[in-house]
Design a protein around this nucleic acid. Structure first.
Lengths: 325, 325
DNA sequence: CCGCTACATCTTTAATGGTCGGCATCTTTT
DNA sequence: AAAAGATGCCGACCATTAAAGATGTAGCGG
């Protein structure tokens, strides 16, 4: 690999001059500039970002910690985050925590060692007090960690309300919400709060089904939903916490010969591409992934520049009505 | 952020001594070692990997260039690659090229600037001769670039053969293969070669439908398949080049009131999680993503160590028979 | 008990690749 | 003649490491 020294020699100037050309600093004649560019071209020179980052104390690297990029929601989120980061000159280090507390901590330490300029944390099994030690710009997704760390989220309460009201509006009288573990203090829990409040307000029978934490296993979802229908054969509405769960619900209904939306209505969450891909197409609550991604990056950059950031960043959700209701 | 200097001061030794503790090099008394550990602990010190990488000429960073991590196949591939890289002490820089030639080149240059130790290239719009300049350990996915650059692939010909034979075995007489642009010299083209050869051999009518290159747009797939059935209403078998395409085919069939598998049989490709998620569950050709990922990393590491690597690395595929045939 | 060797322990110095400020030295323009 | 433009030189700096050097201590023979 050629260094700045090689370029300088080839162009017949000093490294200082090459550095000046690279960074557009000081006086440089057009002739010299061209000589330097030519030498760089010929040597196929690329400045060593490690050295630059070391000196500047800025790596232009971001860490992204998610459960797994294989999950459609996090896949789409990651693609979007990377795209926006790229447009702002930042690179993304991908970390799949598998929702494993130890891995989350290890990844955070690794990211610190690699001098990332900021971390986007979208995997939340870690204890809140662990975050205090991080000492780096952080943005969390869908979880509020104390009063200092900004988070990006969509309006979970509104999402739960929209979904529940839609089910009741369409005539459901006995509905269930299938969600993650509520004991973790996640903002997504507000969906269930809204579900409960709305169901009570509208006077329909309702149930909350919590899944175990580390379950992206669709088979597990299916079993859970089968059990649910076993216990409540007359259930006529399901609010699923992700489109993936909604797909599992569709499968179980098909197995039990329940017609959608005639016998059972289903509302999903996220509006990942799978929602409009499957049949019947899933009615779902759309999270504005692009805006959330852009906002997360913005918040990180503002923290780096020591600008003021607002802690609560809640973006609106929208109802996407399709065929399951 | 505390540096090795701070640790040295706190422990009352020189930085070199701290460095030797860190790297387990030379003679260190147990007492000093403990002092240093204690100082590191108290300062919450993390060694600066930029500086280490700069000195050692090894960053332990890998670049992963894919079309987009939002696509289920590449999402699962990325998750798997990151997991395996992590287990070998490597970190992954995520690059979504959007199948854009300019972006691919830009990403490669960026990765070089950041001194990655190797690149996994799974997005192929770039010209072959561009690769010569890269001058870094590379592994490609599903594309053979000259005789020097090793590639990892699954047995595309076998996949095409399995799929086509299955369709014909099940009674199809008029089949179509929906695939990507064949003018790009991709190994996935072998699926079509196998399709054509097998169809001829088995004496059934067959068609090849090429999609435009930058199309992860499922709507486009649907239009394409609609046109196909318009032209050939008696088509009774579809070999789709991805599970996503197969899902689109299912949707169109449902729209046209064609029953699966009674009227039309469908075989997908990849065996991403979506294949067993949708209804009817998709018969598909399974690519061994985990093994392919592991192999790709192995090949990179071997190149870094200047060991001999084999250029052709083709792993076997398997047929997963489900409900669409 | 001295002197020598051997080794343990820690420090000094230079290197990694690049940036940057100050200052010197020309040349060109005003 | 003064100001501005163009370049070079020197050294400090970023955080870390490797090689070589300095210091101390113990063992051993004489």
């Amino acid at each position: 690999m050629p260094t700045i020294k090689d370029v300088a020699e080839k162009a017949g100037v000093t490294v200082t001059t090459v550095s000046r050309v690279l960074n557009n600093r000081g006086y440089i004649s057009e002739a010299t500039r061209q000589k330097v560019y030519k030498a760089m071209e010929e040597l196929n020179y690329q400045p060593n970002e490690l050295a630059r980052s070391l000196f500047r104390g800025r790596s232009h690297l971001l860490g992204l910690i998610i459960p797994t990029v294989a999950h459609p929601f996090f896949g789409e989120l990651s693609a979007s985050i990377e795209a926006y980061a790229h447009s702002k000159g930042y690179k993304v280090l991908l970390c799949n925590s598998q929702l494993n507390r130890k891995k989350e901590k290890e990844y955070i330490e690794m990211l610190k060692r690699h001098q990332v300029d900021g971390i986007i944390m979208a995997s939340h099994t870690m204890e809140v007090d662990e975050f205090a030690k991080v000492n780096l710009p952080i943005v969390t997704f869908d979880r509020r960690i104390g009063a200092d760390i900004p988070y990006v989220s969509s309006d979970n309460y509104q999402g739960g309300k929209l979904a529940t009201n839609l089910l009741v509006d369409k005539g459901c009288r006995k509905i269930a919400h299938i969600c993650g573990n509520l004991s973790l203090n996640m903002l997504a829990n507000k969906r269930n709060e809204a579900f409960v409040a709305t169901a009570q307000e509208r006077g329909v029978e309702y149930y909350t089904i919590q899944t175990e934490i580390n379950v992206f296993e669709t088979k597990q979802y299916e079993l859970l939903i089968k059990d649910l229908f076993n216990e409540h054969p007359d259930l006529d509405g399901i609010f699923a916490n992700s489109d993936l769960m909604a797909v599992s619900a569709i499968k179980v209904c098909s197995l039990l010969k329940k017609r959608i939306p005639h016998d059972v209505r289903i509302v999903g969450y996220d509006d990942t591409s799978i929602a409009s891909l499957v049949l019947p197409q899933i009615t779902t609550i759309r999270q504005p992934i692009e805006q959330m991604s852009a906002l997360a990056i913005e918040l990180l950059i503002r923290q780096m520049n020591e600008e003021q950031v607002s802690v609560d960043n809640i973006l609106p959700v929208t109802l996407q009505e399709r065929e399951t209701t």
